[in-house]
Simulated scan of single mutants.
Amino acid sequence: MTERPLIVIDLDNTFVDYTTAFRECLTQMGYDGYADAPDPSDYSFACRGWFGNDDTFLPLHRRAVELGLYLRERPYAGALDAAYDLARRHSVLFATSREQDETDSLRWLHAYGLDATADWNLDLWRDTYPETFELTMSRSCRRNGSGIRFCHIQDKTFLDADLYVEDNPHTLDRLMDKKTRVLIKRHAYNLPQCDRAEQSGLGFAFDDWTQAPTLAKRLLRKRMTEDQNNIDTLIQ
């Protein structure tokens, strides 16, 4: 059986609207003035309309998680249909580096009808079996068959996927440094990475999830063509 391409999809502010849910939690915590805060222009939320420094966000984020932040998030319009469309043709793995999350992510996925199977805490696997982690990672993630899977991992570049759908500017830069294909959910804080992806030919930025399956198909077809050309060159 032909191995399916692996697509890794991030959750927060990629597949689901983290920022809106975070605003709601801040209001519940008694912090006024954030209900109409703009799309943050810095990934740390240390920017105009949000916080004055890099140290403010993380403690508030952790308090929001305790208030059920992850269960409050809503999929972006078209994201659910796009995920099922991609899963019919590819191996789809939701991967998140969320902290303080034991079960909320999986509960959320099931509540939205995404029959996600929890594979591993990959950080634990990597720490326990460092000698075999990278050798077995790609094959383990690329299971054939339908369905959507889920895992926790801090450094997603270890997954060696064919395509990543991501918003984190730091992760995107590391992926593109490795010449990896990316689809970027555009935000004010990752505009340089959007430009880099499109100028380098490594990816596309998108605002509407209905665009994602078509863009993914174009990038994967391009990768297959380049891989075949490399094989032909080696044979010659």
Rank of each mutant, 00 (worst) to 15 (best):
R4C: 06
P5H: 14
Y18D: 07
T19A: 14
F22A: 12
F22G: 09
M29K: 10
G30Q: 08
Y34F: 15
A35R: 14
S44V: 01
F45G: 06
C47Y: 11
D55A: 15
T56S: 13
F57L: 12
L58Q: 11
L58P: 14
L58C: 03
P59G: 04
H61Y: 15
R62K: 15
V65P: 01
E66M: 09
G68D: 08
L69R: 07
L69D: 10
E73Y: 00
E73V: 12
P75S: 01
A79E: 04
A79Y: 01
A83N: 06
L86W: 09
A87D: 15
A87W: 07
R89G: 03
L93Y: 05
S97W: 12
Q100A: 14
Q100V: 11
D101K: 07
T103A: 12
Y112K: 09
D119E: 08
N121W: 00
L122S: 07
D123I: 07
Y129R: 00
Y129Q: 04
Y129L: 08
P130G: 04
L135E: 13
G147H: 06
F150W: 10
K156S: 10
K156F: 09
D160K: 03
D160A: 13
D160F: 02
A161F: 10
D162W: 10
V165H: 01
L172G: 14
L172H: 09
D173A: 15
K179T: 09
T180H: 14
R181G: 03
L183F: 13
L183C: 07
H187M: 05
N190S: 11
D195R: 14
S200Y: 04
S200T: 15
A205N: 11
F206T: 04
F206I: 08
F206R: 02
D208H: 12
Q211V: 01
L220F: 05
R221Q: 09
M224C: 02
E226N: 10
D227Y: 08
I231P: 00
I231R: 12
Q236V: 06
